[in-house]
Write a protein that binds this DNA or RNA. Structure first.
Length: 612
RNA sequence: GGGGGUGUAGCUCAAUUGGUUAGAGCGCUGCCCUGUCACGGCAGAGGUUACGGGUUCGAGCCCCGCCACUCCCGCCA
């Protein structure tokens, strides 16, 4: 019985045709004398009817014995449902198939969790879902996520192809490059003591491809980072990796805006407006306290440094005298915040090194606050004016060095938004996507502990041209030609125009980052070599593909858009990986373990060996 | 590495704050049911309360340890 239609295909136009459907028993309703079975496949589901008056008894009995998720193939005639029995919930709900033949392709055991009920299935313990991932992926919601991912991958490839890009694969067995994320290492059997590393990203290969004259490169590249995980971080993940020659920042902006426009149209049939807004790193911090602002709601930070410079409240004026700033935000309507919520916010502040968190609750016409008694009338008037203070508001302050003060309030702003969302007082439409470019990042950050400058993006990022002279005189002021694309508070991707002039690169490495020349040669020698033989000006970007798909699918966790993701500890519950290996495998790799053998666990036999 | 949350029937959750025989819905098994689509009705089975200790006359509940999952901080050039 070869299938003639999929389970989301039959409509009134098919009435009268004899069809064969194959799929899983989604649900069955056995009325005794009549059995309804919904057959589900990747595309949808269709109701089939077993009527004993038309069927041999044996076939009817067979249908009665079916259970959820048995795999069947049925043949029958498509017919109009009787008046009043249409099911508006499914696209095939106007018709049904009157079964004349049934083939049970496979029975299914009772499932560990339901796949037919989205309400329950979405709440099932993720541990179980991961252990039985093949069942989880059968759920229509998960199947849809896989489909969106595939469509977006294909749309990306076709868009990049139209734009003249070549898809080039780069090695996953690479060389360890110690800065940045911790790497996964792969021991080399052929030369004891040497290791490959899995790439954190194809960064260096893609730049070398520019030297190789590829001009326009892209890849859906698998990347590996051996760092602790989050809802939006997996040890292996996928980037849309892009690099172009003979371009400036504007070219990247236009390219990515076009790509995302295509992607949103493909996945959600939405037309997103371009060009995207642009905001400097400094403005993003000043207004939102974070370099990936969620601009779907207000509660922006307000600066009060001028107002409190000569204040008698020493916590504020002292912070300013020490070169810091005073900033505040108005958490509209949160005066009723619980002690626990204030506590949480205070913890955020403390985690940034602040001593505490100053606040004012505006309740019953009064300012309830431990600090307000120190404020002058002028200061109060300034607060009211600039923060538009009203009854029911909660005002939160940070007085610290500029970056710290901004970051504290940025964190608190997001927390307050979450609280308001939970209370239903802040509603953000699911189809609102606020894209923006964050630009003009500082090229360098300063590491107080090590007393040296470090690259805030990576050491190949080009400085803004007019800032190059500042490299040697005032590194803090140098802006990088670095850009991030952000949507709704999520960093979708980032990149930069790279340095292609050997003298600038030398200055950055040796004079700014203070890396000794011999070390530079050891770590980046092959790249610097390549750059000596005619490197075109170039730049690129990488988008987090998993995050992109998660946003399109409206899920907070990228595990929902990866077919076989790993847990927060990096294990795969379905295959029980990682696992120990045999002594022989270790010997081949010249590796001796220093970890104690797990108690009570015999050493597993080497794969492929048979017991003697 | 640190902090928070969760763990009770196959699944989702209760268990009046330490007190009788640990319950419900769904699922499962059996019987009944010819227009259901969350089908319905009747009956039934199903529990080492993650695991190991401890306190107590008595522990699902309190204490210590441990494991797993999860969220966050650190980390992620």
């Amino acid at each position: 019985m070869k299938r003639t239609h999929h389970c989301n295909e039959l409509r009134p136009a098919h009435i009268g045709q004899t069809v064969t459907l194959s799929g899983w028993v989604h649900s069955r309703r056995d009325l005794g004398g009549l059995i309804f079975i919904d057959i589900r496949d990747r595309e949808g589901r269709t109701q089939t009817v077993f009527d004993p008056s038309d069927l041999p008894a044996a076939l009817f009995e067979q249908a009665a014995a079916l259970r959820s998720e048995c795999v069947v193939s049925i043949t029958g005639a498509v017919r109009q449902r009787p008046v009043g029995t249409n099911n508006a919930k499914i696209p095939t709900g106007e018709v049904e198939v009157a079964v004349t033949a049934l083939e049970v392709l496979n029975m299914a055991e009772v499932l560990p969790f339901p796949v037919d009920d989205p309400e329950i299935a979405s709440k099932v313990n993720e541990e179980l879902r991961l252990q039985y991932r093949y069942l989880d992926l059968r759920r229509p919601e998960m199947a849809r996520n896989l489909k969106v991912r595939s469509k977006v991958a294909i749309a990306t490839r076709s868009y990049m192809d139209e734009q003249g890009f070549l898809e080039v694969e780069t090695p996953t067995l690479f060389k360890s490059t110690p800065e940045g994320a911790r790497e996964f290492l792969v021991p080399n059997r052929r030369e004891p003591g040497t290791f490959y590393a899995l790439p954190q990203s194809p960064q260096q290969f893609k730049q070398i491809l520019m030297v190789a004259g590829v001009e326009r490169y892209f890849q859906l590249a698998r990347c590996y980072r051996d760092e602790d995980l989050r809802a939006d971080r997996q040890p292996e993940f996928t980037q849309v990796d892009i690099e172009m020659s003979f371009i400036e920042r504007e070219d990247i902006y236009a390219l990515i805006e076009g790509l995302l426009k295509r992607v949103w149209k493909t996945a959600l049939n939405m037309d997103i407006p371009t060009p995207f807004k642009r905001i400097s790193f400094e403005e993003a911090l000043n207004r939102f306290g974070i370099d990936k602002p969620d601009t779907r709601f207000g509660m922006e930070l307000v600066d009060f440094t001028a107002e409190f410079r000569t204040s008698t409240f020493k916590v504020f004026s002292g912070a300013i005298a020490a070169g810091g700033v005073v900033k505040a935000l108005n958490a509209k309507g949160l005066a009723g915040a619980t002690q626990g919520q204030i506590e949480t916010m205070t913890e955020y502040a403390k985690s940034f090194g602040a001593k505490g968190l100053a606040y004012i609750k505006v309740e019953n016409g009064e300012w309830k606050s431990p600090i307000v008694k120190f404020f002058s009338a002028t200061e109060k008037a300034a607060l009211i004016a600039k923060l538009a203070i009203e009854e029911g508001d909660l005002i939160l302050f940070a007085a610290d060095q500029w970056l710290t003060a901004c970051e504290i309030l940025g964190k608190i702003r997001l927390y307050c938004a979450d609280v308001l969302k939970t209370q239903g007082r802040l509603v953000i439409p699911a189809d609102q996507f606020n894209f923006l470019w964050v630009i003009e990042f500082p090229l360098l950050g300063f590491d107080r502990e090590q007393n040296r400058w470090y690259s805030s993006h990576h050491p190949f990022t080009a400085p803004v041209t007019q800032d190059i002279p500042l490299l040697k005189t005032d590194p803090k002021k140098v802006r990088g030609q670095h850009y991030d694309v952000v949507v709704n508070g999520v960093e979708l991707g980032g990149g930069s125009i790279r340095i292609h002039q050997p003298d600038v690169q030398k200055t950055v490495f040796e004079e700014v980052l203070q890396i000794p020349p011999e070390e530079t040669k050891l770590r980046f020698g092959y790249m610097l070599d390549a750059f000596r033989y005619g490197a075109p000006p170039h730049g690129g970007i990488a988008l987090g593909f998993d995050r992109l798909i998660a946003i399109l699918c409206g899920t907070p966790s990228i595990r929902d858009v990866i077919a076989f993701p790993k847990t927060a500890k990096g294990t795969d519950l379905m295959t029980d990986s990682p696992a120990t290996v045999s002594a022989k495998q270790l010997r081949d790799l010249h590796i001796e373990l220093k970890v104690p053998k797990p108690a009570g666990m015999p050493t597993p036999p080497a794969p492929g060996t048979t017991p003697q």
